[in-house]
Lab assay of single mutants.
Amino acid sequence: MTEYKLVVVGAGGVGKSALTIQLIQNHFVDEYDPTIEDSYRKQVVIDGETCLLDILDTAGQEEYSAMRDQYMRTGEGFLCVFAINNTKSFEDIHHYREQIKRVKDSEDVPMVLVGNKCDLPSRTVDTKQAQDLARSYGIPFIETSAKTRQGVDDAFYTLVREIRKHKEKMSKDGKKKKKKSKTKCVIM
């Protein structure tokens, strides 16, 4: 069974824990209790493949930012979460993405942009803004509501699919490099 290491990042209060708990335990946590770091595991079937999701729910508070490099190193894919009623959390996505790329030393890291709290009427981040940002990053965008469960499975499952595509691409690139290195030079 394939294991996928997913990391949920975003500013404090955007609903990272609520999304994760909704996926794992099928219930909505409405009281806000700032996370330092929590880890969850769940076995699911995605596109006919049974897999184990190892999900790291991270601290959004700035005082825990020193811990970010460590979990970013171990993560295979990242859910970059903002709240649709919090423009600052949307603007912060850029910083999370840049930090992930720096730590992973790669421009090509599996990510999904997630606009959470889409059940709320007080939207300050337009869907088109988020779609445009995701398009500019070359990553999928999904709106979710941890409260109603809308888009929750889709967000995590899409990230797994992005990781699969990335692994497939990397193995193809690896095979191309191996083929090239088999060419021999004969000096007579």
Rank of each mutant, 00 (worst) to 15 (best):
residue 139 I to V: 09
residue 56 L to N: 01
residue 69 D to G: 02
residue 20 T to W: 00
residue 113 L to G: 02
residue 182 K to R: 09
residue 98 E to N: 11
residue 52 L to Q: 04
residue 23 L to S: 15
residue 101 K to V: 03
residue 107 E to A: 10
residue 8 V to S: 05
residue 127 T to N: 10
residue 25 Q to F: 09
residue 79 L to I: 11
residue 126 D to P: 09
residue 32 Y to E: 00
residue 108 D to H: 13
residue 165 K to V: 09
residue 36 I to Y: 01
residue 59 A to P: 05
residue 175 K to Y: 14
residue 6 L to N: 14
residue 24 I to M: 04
residue 102 R to A: 04
residue 55 I to Y: 00
residue 159 L to V: 12
residue 159 L to W: 05
residue 74 T to Y: 15
residue 162 E to H: 14
residue 8 V to E: 05
residue 187 I to F: 09
residue 34 P to A: 02
residue 29 V to F: 03
residue 129 Q to E: 12
residue 110 P to S: 05
residue 158 T to L: 08
residue 114 V to P: 05
residue 7 V to W: 12
residue 29 V to C: 09
residue 48 G to C: 05
residue 48 G to I: 06
residue 26 N to T: 03
residue 154 D to C: 07
residue 82 F to R: 01
residue 76 E to S: 06
residue 166 H to D: 11
residue 107 E to Y: 14
residue 40 Y to F: 09
residue 115 G to V: 11
residue 134 A to G: 13
residue 106 S to L: 13
residue 107 E to V: 12
residue 12 G to V: 04
residue 41 R to S: 04
residue 180 K to G: 06
residue 48 G to K: 09
residue 167 K to P: 05
residue 87 T to E: 14
residue 30 D to G: 06
residue 66 A to R: 03
residue 110 P to W: 00
residue 95 H to R: 13
residue 54 D to P: 00
residue 51 C to N: 04
residue 167 K to T: 14
residue 146 A to I: 01
residue 38 D to P: 01
residue 39 S to Q: 05
residue 132 D to V: 07
residue 111 M to H: 01
residue 2 T to F: 05
residue 107 E to T: 13
residue 84 I to F: 13
residue 7 V to Q: 01
residue 54 D to A: 00
residue 69 D to R: 03
residue 9 V to Q: 08
residue 23 L to P: 00
residue 29 V to P: 04
residue 66 A to I: 15
residue 111 M to N: 05
residue 76 E to P: 01
residue 81 V to N: 04
residue 26 N to R: 03
residue 70 Q to S: 01
residue 171 S to R: 03
residue 109 V to Y: 10
residue 122 S to I: 08
residue 20 T to H: 00
residue 38 D to V: 01
residue 21 I to F: 07
residue 156 F to C: 12
residue 77 G to A: 14
residue 100 I to V: 12
residue 132 D to Q: 08
residue 103 V to A: 04
residue 37 E to A: 00
residue 36 I to H: 00
residue 133 L to A: 10
residue 187 I to D: 15
residue 33 D to H: 14
residue 170 M to C: 09
residue 173 D to R: 08
residue 127 T to I: 10
residue 178 K to M: 06
residue 70 Q to W: 06
residue 62 E to R: 03
residue 12 G to A: 02
residue 42 K to I: 09
residue 15 G to R: 03
residue 36 I to S: 00
residue 154 D to K: 08
residue 18 A to S: 05
residue 130 A to E: 10
residue 127 T to G: 10
residue 66 A to D: 05
residue 32 Y to D: 00
residue 47 D to A: 05
residue 79 L to N: 04
residue 152 V to C: 08
residue 173 D to A: 06
residue 47 D to I: 01
residue 142 I to M: 08
residue 107 E to C: 13
residue 77 G to I: 04
residue 56 L to G: 10
residue 60 G to T: 02
residue 136 S to Y: 15
residue 164 R to N: 08
residue 149 R to E: 07
residue 55 I to K: 00
residue 57 D to R: 00
residue 180 K to E: 13
residue 58 T to H: 03
residue 180 K to L: 08
residue 134 A to T: 07
residue 27 H to N: 08
residue 115 G to A: 12
residue 53 L to V: 10
residue 18 A to M: 02
residue 50 T to K: 02
residue 68 R to T: 15
residue 39 S to F: 05
residue 39 S to N: 04
residue 11 A to T: 12
residue 108 D to Y: 08
residue 75 G to V: 08
residue 127 T to F: 07
residue 98 E to D: 10
residue 52 L to E: 02
residue 122 S to M: 13
residue 142 I to L: 09
residue 6 L to I: 13
residue 131 Q to K: 10
residue 181 S to C: 09
residue 118 C to L: 13
residue 79 L to V: 12
residue 175 K to W: 07
residue 87 T to S: 10
residue 38 D to K: 00
residue 15 G to F: 15
residue 154 D to S: 10
residue 69 D to L: 02
residue 162 E to Q: 11
residue 12 G to R: 01
residue 14 V to F: 12
residue 116 N to G: 11
residue 108 D to T: 04
residue 86 N to W: 02
residue 82 F to A: 12
residue 143 E to A: 02
residue 112 V to H: 01
residue 116 N to L: 15
residue 12 G to I: 02
residue 119 D to Q: 07
residue 160 V to F: 06
residue 83 A to F: 03
residue 51 C to M: 05
residue 132 D to M: 08
residue 35 T to H: 00
residue 168 E to G: 14
residue 79 L to Q: 01
residue 29 V to R: 08
residue 130 A to M: 13
residue 78 F to W: 02
residue 69 D to P: 01
residue 155 A to E: 02
residue 91 E to R: 13
residue 129 Q to L: 11
residue 43 Q to A: 01
residue 75 G to A: 07
residue 157 Y to D: 09
residue 36 I to G: 00
residue 128 K to W: 08
residue 175 K to S: 06
residue 119 D to P: 01
residue 188 M to S: 14
residue 78 F to T: 01
residue 3 E to L: 05
residue 175 K to L: 05
residue 6 L to F: 11
residue 58 T to G: 03
residue 47 D to C: 03
residue 39 S to R: 00
residue 68 R to W: 13
residue 10 G to V: 04
residue 5 K to N: 15
residue 137 Y to F: 06
residue 51 C to I: 02
residue 52 L to I: 09
residue 21 I to T: 12
residue 137 Y to S: 14
residue 30 D to M: 11
residue 131 Q to G: 12
residue 75 G to Q: 12
residue 33 D to S: 06
residue 175 K to G: 13
residue 167 K to F: 07
residue 154 D to P: 08
residue 114 V to N: 00
residue 122 S to P: 09
residue 6 L to Y: 05
residue 9 V to H: 14
residue 9 V to F: 14
residue 10 G to W: 05
residue 33 D to N: 06
residue 22 Q to D: 12
residue 120 L to A: 11
residue 188 M to G: 15
residue 130 A to I: 12
residue 73 R to G: 05
residue 118 C to Y: 09
residue 150 Q to N: 09
residue 63 E to F: 02
residue 54 D to Y: 07
residue 76 E to Y: 14
residue 4 Y to Q: 04
residue 164 R to C: 10
residue 156 F to I: 13
residue 110 P to V: 03
residue 114 V to W: 01
residue 187 I to C: 15
residue 165 K to R: 12
residue 165 K to Y: 10
residue 88 K to A: 07
residue 5 K to T: 13
residue 102 R to S: 05
residue 187 I to L: 13
residue 18 A to R: 02
residue 117 K to W: 15
residue 55 I to D: 00
residue 34 P to R: 00
residue 166 H to S: 12
residue 105 D to M: 10
residue 98 E to K: 03
residue 24 I to Q: 14
residue 173 D to W: 14
residue 17 S to P: 12
residue 86 N to I: 03
residue 141 F to S: 07
residue 125 V to R: 07
residue 73 R to K: 07
residue 123 R to W: 07
residue 11 A to R: 08
residue 187 I to R: 15
residue 102 R to L: 07
residue 133 L to T: 06
residue 118 C to F: 08
residue 10 G to S: 06
residue 125 V to K: 10
